[in-house]
Amino acid sequence: MISPNNQIVFENVSKFYGEILGVNRVNLSLPPGVTSLVGPNGSGKTTLMNLMTGLVQPTQGKVSVLGLTPDQPEELFRYIGYCAQFDSFPKGVTGYEFINSFLRLRGLSSQDANRLTWEAIERVGMTEAARRKVAGYSKGMRQRMRLAQALAHHPTVLVLDEPLNGLDPMARSESIALFEALGKQGMHVIVSSHVLHEVDKISDQVVLMSFGYVVAEGQISGVRSEVKEHPMQILVRCSRPSMLASRLFAQDHVVEAKLHTDGAGLLVRTHDADSFYKLLSQIVQDKEDDFKLEAVAPADDDVNSVYQYLIGSGGGTV
């Protein structure tokens, strides 16, 4: 049994920004390993991360990280490294100064800070550019430097808000490998992303968010099958709906296909949006069918379509 002090715990946490909902009634208990927070824009990922790191305070409820709360900054922030979503730096610093000055702030001696600074810079492959001003870095370089800053003091909880943004494919796969390795070492690595497939392979658990609510949570396989159990409605507007319907009935993931009342569309209910989208694109490419597709969209705005949006690689459009 893992002791509760090893976890990041949200107890009935709500955060309102005035009238605006940030997150609502979140109950979570995150063990070590890689955790992905996944959700569309404005779903509350950053809010959850800011709550974890004390940058915002809950309107209601309690947050604790490894048994510590943000009221104990001298303790808590030794264990936390947070690479925020915001791409900003103190003015006029070089990459080296940026990391070094905040290490000194931790009370480290100048030698220790120097050693840890170079270690972090090497780790993200920024040694050459370290003495240059941050203002002259590319987006990806700034992202890496901020990652280095979050890592430099060897935190046990690493919180990364959209860390893959702006990285080239090479740096992307290197970062993913780094997160996975850190998670395997027993660290908490919390990563946020808009789409699950970006991070699903390395995630030990996922938290799906929508409109400020946690809509699903747990190990990736569990969340996937939970989603599969809920069929999803998709509205297809096209030139030959009845032809499409006949093709669809041959598929066992399709539960229902209904002609739209105006005759120019088909309402489809399916367990597997991915396969459905694949089939649809095959039909479209197949010239013989003389099939014209006008629009495809999730027909209901409920949690299911959000699941599908998050889980499916098509993202709701073909």
Partner: peptide
């Protein structure tokens, strides 16, 4: 990006007496 073993800095090198720590900070 290489992955050397993570050893928390938390125990090492950080001044323990609060006043000393505050002055350093």
């Amino acid at each position: 990006m290489s992955v050397p073993a993570q050893k928390p800095v938390t125990q090492q090198a950080v001044n323990t007496r609060p006043v000393q720590l505050w002055v350093a900070q």
